[in-house]
Design a protein around this nucleic acid. Structure first.
Length: 258
DNA sequence: ATGCCCGGAGCGTCCGGA
C-alpha cells in the first residue's frame, strides 16, 4: 500500500500534472493540499475516471485538502479541527482506509513573522496538538500526513541563516514539531534518510530547483502501530522539474499489508 | 530593500504563497 502526499498548488490549474503523476507513481492513497478550489469545483469525476475516489474540504482561492483512494468509497472520520467554530480555513480532513487512520493536513504558513498570520499558525498548532494526542489514544495505526509548513531542523533547509525569522523555521514551529515526536510520532522520511538532504519544496523564484535551494516541509508522522509496517519511502523529486509543476513535489511511503 | 515566479479572481493588478 503506497501512501503519498502532494501540495498541488491549485488542483484545476495543475490537473494534467496530477493525472500524469498518478498514472506514473500509482499511489493507492493520496493526501492533497492547496486545492485552491471551492467544493463545487473539485474535479471528482475526472479523478474517478482515473481510478480514484475522493473526499475533500474545498475553499475558494485558498487552502483546501483532499484524500484520494483506489480502494473505493472513503470512510471520512473528520473534517476540520475542534475548538474554533469561526475558523474558515479548509486545512484538515481525515479518513479510515484499510485499517489506517489518515489525517491530511495543510498547516498555516504563518508569514510574515511577527503578526496575526503567525498568531493564527500558533493557534492552529495548538488545536492540532490536542487532536494528535487524541489520535494516539485510539490504539490504531495512524498517520498525520501533509504540508506542515515547518522546517524541522537545520538539515532541512539549504540556508538556515536565511530562515531564522521565517515562520516556517521559528523556534515556536520547530518546538511544536519536536513536541509531536515526544507524543510518540515518528518523522518517517527522516528516519529512512538520517543523513541526507531531503527537500520537498523549491521556490519558483531565483531558479531554486535548479540550484537545489530547497526546504523539507511535507512530512509523514506515524505512530508506533503503523511505523512497524513501513517498508520504504521517498520523494518524487523529478516531478518538481516538469513543466507547470507545483512548487512542492510528491512524497510517499510504502506500507506492508497482510 | 526589492524583484525574481506562480494560481486564482477577473480583466486592473492585487493577494497569498514560503
Amino acid at each position: 500500500m503506497k501512501i503519498a502526499t502532494y501540495n498541488i498548488n491549485g488542483i484545476n490549474g495543475r490537473l494534467p500534472n496530477l493525472l500524469h503523476w498518478l498514472s506514473e507513481a500509482k499511489p493507492d492513497v493520496v493526501c492533497l493540499q492547496e486545492l485552491k478550489a471551492a467544493d463545487d469545483r473539485f474535479p471528482e469525476q475526472t479523478l474517478l475516471d482515473a481510478g480514484y475516489y475522493s473526499i475533500w474540504q474545498g475553499q475558494q482561492s485558498w487552502n483546501g485538502v483532499a484524500i484520494l483512494s483506489r480502494y473505493g468509497e472513503i470512510k471520512e472520520t473528520r473534517r476540520g479541527l475542534d475548538d474554533d467554530p469561526d475558523d474558515t480555513h479548509s486545512r484538515y480532513i481525515e479518513a479510515f482506509i484499510n485499517g489506517i487512520v489518515i489525517g491530511c493536513l495543510y498547516l498555516p504558513n504563518g508569514n510574515p513573522y511577527p503578526g496575526p498570520k503567525f498568531d493564527y499558525k500558533l493557534q492552529w498548532i495548538k488545536r492540532l496538538t490536542i487532536h494528535a494526542k487524541r489520535l494516539m489514544g485510539f490504539g490504531l495505526p495512524v498517520a498525520l500526513i501533509g504540508d506542515f509548513n515547518i522546517i524541522p531542523t537545520d538539515m532541512d533547509t539549504y540556508k538556515p541563516e536565511k530562515y531564522r525569522n521565517n515562520a516556517l523555521f521559528r523556534p515556536e514551529a520547530r518546538k511544536f514539531f519536536q513536541s509531536l515526536l515526544k507524543q510518540g510520532w515518528t518523522d518517517v522520511i527522516r528516519k529512512l534518510y538520517p543523513e541526507e538532504r531531503v527537500y520537498t519544496f523549491w521556490e519558483y523564484l531565483r531558479h531554486a530547483y535548479k540550484r537545489d535551494a530547497g526546504l523539507r516541509l511535507d512530512h509523514f508522522l506515524l505512530n508506533e502501530q503503523l511505523l512497524g509496517k513501513v517498508s520504504g519511502g521517498g520523494v518524487d523529486r523529478r516531478i518538481r522539474g516538469l513543466a507547470h509543476s507545483s512548487d512542492h513535489t510528491p512524497v510517499w511511503i510504502e506500507i506492508q499489508t497482510d
